[in-house]
Amino acid sequence: MRVKCVLCDDINQLEDGDPLAKKLRNRPIHTYMCPTCKERIGRLTDERVATGNFIFYRSSHLTEKDF
Rank of each mutant, 00 (worst) to 15 (best):
residue 8 C to W: 12
residue 14 L to K: 11
residue 11 I to K: 10
residue 33 M to I: 14
residue 34 C to R: 06
residue 17 G to A: 09
residue 42 G to Q: 14
residue 40 R to N: 07
residue 9 D to I: 01
residue 21 A to D: 11
residue 1 M to P: 12
residue 10 D to S: 08
residue 13 Q to A: 07
residue 23 K to S: 03
residue 41 I to A: 15
residue 2 R to W: 10
residue 5 C to S: 11
residue 26 N to E: 10
residue 50 A to F: 05
residue 40 R to A: 13
residue 43 R to V: 07
residue 29 I to P: 00
residue 26 N to S: 07
residue 26 N to P: 07
residue 21 A to I: 01
residue 34 C to E: 04
residue 28 P to F: 12
residue 23 K to I: 12
residue 15 E to C: 03
residue 21 A to G: 04
residue 5 C to A: 10
residue 45 T to D: 08
residue 48 R to H: 07
residue 5 C to T: 01
residue 39 E to K: 14
residue 30 H to R: 10
residue 42 G to C: 00
residue 4 K to G: 07
residue 6 V to G: 10
residue 14 L to P: 01
residue 3 V to S: 09
residue 27 R to Y: 14
residue 43 R to A: 14
residue 1 M to G: 06
residue 35 P to D: 09
residue 15 E to L: 10
residue 21 A to M: 09
residue 26 N to W: 10
residue 39 E to Q: 09
residue 37 C to Q: 02
residue 18 D to E: 08
residue 28 P to C: 04
residue 39 E to W: 02
residue 40 R to T: 01
residue 9 D to L: 06
residue 23 K to H: 02
residue 18 D to R: 07
residue 47 E to N: 05
residue 38 K to V: 08
residue 36 T to I: 01
residue 29 I to E: 12
residue 37 C to W: 01
residue 9 D to Y: 12
residue 44 L to H: 04
residue 4 K to L: 06
residue 27 R to S: 03
residue 23 K to C: 00
residue 29 I to V: 12
residue 35 P to Q: 13
residue 39 E to S: 11
residue 25 R to G: 03
residue 7 L to E: 11
residue 36 T to W: 00
residue 33 M to D: 05
residue 36 T to A: 06
residue 9 D to P: 00
residue 30 H to D: 04
residue 23 K to N: 05
residue 10 D to F: 04
residue 31 T to K: 15
residue 11 I to A: 07
residue 12 N to W: 14
residue 33 M to C: 03
residue 19 P to C: 03
residue 31 T to Q: 15
residue 20 L to S: 04
residue 30 H to G: 04
residue 45 T to G: 07
residue 24 L to Y: 05
residue 45 T to R: 15
residue 21 A to C: 11
residue 20 L to V: 15
residue 23 K to W: 01
residue 28 P to N: 13
residue 32 Y to N: 09
residue 50 A to K: 11
residue 16 D to V: 07
residue 31 T to A: 13
residue 40 R to Y: 10
residue 43 R to I: 01
residue 40 R to P: 02
residue 7 L to R: 13
residue 41 I to C: 09
residue 8 C to A: 09
residue 1 M to K: 07
residue 17 G to N: 14
residue 33 M to P: 00
residue 1 M to A: 04
residue 16 D to A: 14
residue 36 T to K: 06
residue 24 L to A: 05
residue 50 A to S: 09
residue 37 C to I: 01
residue 39 E to I: 03
residue 39 E to V: 01
residue 24 L to K: 08
residue 36 T to L: 01
residue 16 D to I: 13
residue 46 D to E: 14
residue 37 C to N: 08
residue 7 L to P: 00
residue 3 V to N: 10
residue 19 P to Q: 05
residue 19 P to D: 02
residue 9 D to W: 10
residue 38 K to W: 01
residue 32 Y to D: 03
residue 8 C to I: 02
residue 3 V to Q: 10
residue 22 K to A: 08
residue 34 C to K: 03
residue 47 E to Y: 00
residue 15 E to H: 12
residue 29 I to K: 09
residue 40 R to C: 02
residue 21 A to P: 02
residue 29 I to G: 06
residue 32 Y to F: 15
residue 7 L to W: 05
residue 36 T to Y: 05
residue 23 K to P: 06
residue 2 R to E: 15
residue 38 K to I: 01
residue 7 L to H: 02
residue 49 V to H: 06
residue 45 T to C: 05
residue 29 I to H: 02
residue 14 L to A: 03
residue 50 A to L: 13
residue 50 A to R: 14
residue 11 I to T: 08
residue 30 H to A: 05
